[in-house]
Amino acid sequence: MNRFDYVRAGTVAEAVQALSGANARLIAGGTNLVDLMKYNVERPDRLVDITRLPLNAIEDHEGGLRIGALVTNAIAAYDERVASRYPVLASAILAGATGQLRNAATTGGNLNQRTRCYYFYDDATPCNKREPGTGCPAIGGVNRIHAIFGISPTCIATHPSDMCVALAALDAEIRVAGPSGERSIPFSEYHRLPGGTPQFDNTLQPGEIVLSVDLPAQDTASHYTYLKLRDRLSYAFALVSVAAILDLDGDTVSRARFALGGVAHKPWRNAEAEAFLQGKAPTRENFEAAADIVIREATPQDGNAFKVELARRAIIRGLTQAAAGTPQSVSDKRIA
């Protein structure tokens, strides 16, 4: 871990100010940043401790919920309002990491966690995300866990979050503050694709800090699921995950929303596939057709080609679970 200044911010304004100038990073739970600093992947000159900022509440907000950036993953997942109104979010959070990590990791930190690409994590190897311009050895290298959608010639990393997959499906908004005031970012615009600048994971501007995740008013309690597929039954990042929410009007899908995790540089949604399901019956045939629309865009590598079929099947099963009202249990490892 490199040497750095340590600053405790007492207010959001102080935090924003402390971020300016130096190569500074905000720190709260530390579960990803300290990890990366020990690997010399992150080498900030200044750490701004924001744990004392008043951003740790879950509040009703315009009929929805506002989850403060410092609310831990555990508090969010077990919050009665989250669990009853946005169970897909609770389920996704609990599918990620471990009891210990969820007690420390925060909502804001989860948004901003970095990829688990082996090469990004290993400073003995080149990586365009870690050191722009050095190359991407994952392309042609070990790429079992890498992206199949939205890749670029410079980067095939994925965003590893479970929570964010649910937030994507829920059309959450991210409220941020920065040198030029506050703004809200639609979830779909928060994370980005690597393009030619894979060093940027998201669209936060310099000096901006996440204040909250805002969940719009909606009824998602009955037809949802978070289905996660991974290399062991717990404590592993997703190979593919699906957050699915269906609005059903009798035997018709009035709205379908589903996002995939583990397959792209951001939680992956496909508007065409979702639109396809609108007004259709929640049948296996329709789910298969929707899945086929999604995977049409896949551009896999040698090591992760299996993810294309896995994603297809996961979409079908996820939508089936959501339609049937049999969401995936976190502890019962049989897949419903």
């Binding site: 994590y121 290993d122 070990v142 290399d231 062991r232 039954l233 717990s234 592993a236 502890s331 490892k333």
Partner: peptide, 15 residues
């Protein structure tokens, strides 16, 4: 390349 316990998977309790 997967030289850590996050990516080298050994069984966990749930397995």
């Amino acid at each position: 390349m997967n030289h850590n316990l996050a990516e080298y998977h050994v069984p966990v309790n749930a397995d």
